[in-house]
Simulated assay, not measured.
Amino acid sequence: MAFFIEILIGGLMAGMLYALVGLGFVLIFKASGVFNFAQGAMVLLAALAMARFAEWIPQFLGLQSKVLANVLAFGLAMAMMFVLAWLIERLVLRYLVNQDGATLLLATLGIASFLEGMGQSIFGSSVYKIRIGMPKDPLFLFNSTFEGGIMVNQEDLIAAVIAAVLVTLLALFFQKTTSGRALRAVADDHMAAQSVGIPLNRMWVIVWCVAGVVATVTGMIWGSKLGVQFSLGTIALRALPVVILGGLTSIPGAIVGGLIIGVGEKMSEVYLGPIIGSGIEIWFAYVLALVFLLFRPQGLFGEKIIDRI
């Protein structure tokens, strides 16, 4: 029983990180109706920026405190993502207002390629490490209930808490604030939103800024766990099953989808791996996503689109 609970907790922790990645896609889709393939590149660029700024700040400012250097690096990376969001709207999205979804999709692919190249040019292509002091030693809980206790990774636990707080704040932003409600209106119909006075360009800047915040937090966590390397840009592919399961328009769906994928991967690898073969953790999420596409393409919490003629 203790082993099962360990696997379950590990899957839930991983699921929260998947949810954090999928959240960036949901944000952009809710505001523009397009799947943002640049989200993975944004995570990579934010992680690269924070890792390199954390190295450069002590050299230029003579700081001895690693904590202060990390705080400043995070703030600079966040500011860079804000400026990037403004430039994307100013130079790309402004000229694509009311265009087809396919046009916007291709635009995000172009943005992704540009961001990956720019990141390599400015920050280098080596493997970097983000050291933010997250404890890596495991905790052993419920020692009195289970022999040997239940092992929980402290780093995964802290990352899951950060992800949960961020998801909660974003859910409140979309439900309770004027800007959040305006973004939902823009997602439903660009032209109708403009006709009632909602400034589409400003809304896109806001949502890309919010997506930049999510990318910075995601890059910090994943960079701390796995190191910052250009394979981090492929993290977008890990989020595809998450948003397919949860629904492209639902923030709670991103959470549930991430948790299902995280737990499903761990459980299938441990219990089905010895029967089917190793490596099931790699393709399990995509098979599950395919099943949902066949029987419930809008996902668990997504809105079913009905076209009337």
Score class of each variant (00 low, 15 high):
276 I>S: 13
49 A>L: 04
262 G>R: 10
180 G>L: 07
116 E>Q: 12
151 M>S: 13
301 F>M: 10
243 V>G: 03
101 G>D: 11
216 T>I: 02
215 A>C: 01
66 K>R: 11
268 S>V: 08
176 K>R: 13
177 T>C: 05
14 A>D: 15
232 L>Y: 05
96 L>P: 00
200 L>F: 13
84 L>K: 09
70 N>Y: 08
276 I>Y: 12
55 E>T: 13
84 L>Q: 10
198 I>F: 07
107 A>P: 01
16 M>N: 08
221 I>W: 10
222 W>I: 14
275 I>M: 11
279 G>H: 08
21 V>Y: 01
76 L>W: 02
64 Q>F: 15
275 I>E: 12
148 G>N: 14
126 S>N: 08
234 T>H: 09
271 Y>W: 14
122 I>K: 01
103 T>E: 13
220 M>D: 06
242 V>C: 03
5 I>C: 00
291 V>N: 09
185 A>G: 13
160 A>C: 09
296 R>Q: 14
301 F>Y: 13
233 G>P: 02
39 Q>W: 02
286 Y>L: 10
307 D>C: 11
9 I>P: 00
111 I>K: 04
101 G>H: 12
79 A>D: 02
165 V>A: 11
60 F>R: 05
111 I>N: 02
171 A>T: 06
100 D>Y: 13
140 F>Y: 15
192 A>Q: 03
24 G>L: 05
40 G>R: 08
134 M>A: 10
131 R>S: 15
283 W>T: 11
